[in-house]
Amino acid sequence: MMRRRSTTPTEDLFLLASRLPWWVSVLIAAAAWFALQPIANSQPAAIADLHEFSSLVSGQVFCAFAQLGQLLLPPIFLVGSFASVIGRARGANTIQLGTTLGGQLAAV
Score class of each variant (00 low, 15 high):
Gln43Lys: 11
Met1Tyr: 06
Ser54Ala: 12
Ala35Ser: 12
Leu56Pro: 06
Val61Cys: 02
Ala40His: 01
Phe62Cys: 02
Asn41Gly: 12
Glu11Gly: 05
Ala45Phe: 02
Arg88His: 06
Arg19Glu: 15
Pro44Asp: 12
Phe77Cys: 05
Gly91Ala: 15
Ala66Arg: 03
Gln60Val: 06
Gln60Trp: 07
Leu105Thr: 09
Leu56Thr: 08
Ala83Trp: 01
Ala45Ser: 07
Ser18Tyr: 01
Ser84Asn: 06
Ser42Gln: 14
Pro9Gly: 04
Gln43Ala: 07
Val57Cys: 06
Pro74Ser: 05
Phe77Met: 05
Gln60Met: 15
Ser6Val: 07
Leu73Ser: 03
Val26Ala: 11
Phe34Ala: 07
Ala89Pro: 00
Ser54Phe: 08
Leu105Tyr: 10
Ser54Asn: 09
Ser18Lys: 08
Pro74Gln: 04
Ile47Met: 13
Pro75His: 09
Ser55Asn: 11
Asp49Ser: 13
Asn93Ser: 12
Ala31Phe: 11
Val61Asp: 05
Ala35Trp: 11
Asp12Arg: 13
Ala35Leu: 14
Val108Cys: 11
Thr10Ser: 05
Ala40Arg: 06
Val61Phe: 14
Ala40Lys: 01
Leu16Glu: 11
Pro21Trp: 05
Ser18Cys: 08
Ala30Gln: 07
Leu97Val: 14
Val79Pro: 01
Asn93Thr: 14
Gln43His: 09
Gln70Asp: 03
Ile47Gln: 10
Pro44Thr: 04
Ala32Cys: 07
Ser42Ala: 15
Phe62Leu: 13
Ser81Asn: 03
Ile95Ser: 12
Pro38Gln: 14
Ser18Arg: 12
Val57Ile: 15
Gly59Phe: 09
Gln96Thr: 13
Leu13Gly: 03
Ala46His: 07
Val26Ile: 13
Ser25Gln: 00
Val24Met: 08
Ala92Val: 09
Gly59Leu: 04
Gln43Thr: 14
Gln104Lys: 14
Thr10Glu: 12
Phe14Asp: 05
Leu13Met: 15
Phe62Ile: 03
Val57Tyr: 10
Leu50Lys: 09
Ala83Asp: 05
Ala48Asn: 13
Ser81Lys: 03
Ala35Pro: 02
Gly87Met: 00
Arg90Asn: 14
Ile39Asn: 03
Asp49Asn: 15
Leu56Gly: 04
Ala66Phe: 05
Leu101Trp: 04
Ile39Lys: 08
Leu97Ala: 09
Ile76Ala: 06
Leu71Thr: 11
Gln43Glu: 13
Leu73Tyr: 03
Glu11Pro: 00
Leu68Cys: 00
Gln67Asn: 09
Ser84Lys: 00
Leu72Tyr: 04
Met2Arg: 12
Asn41Cys: 04
Asn41Lys: 13
Leu78Gln: 01
Leu105Asn: 11
Gly80Lys: 00
Ala29Leu: 06
Ala92Gly: 14
Ala64Gly: 05
Arg88Leu: 02
Ala107Gln: 13
Thr99Arg: 12
Ser18Pro: 02
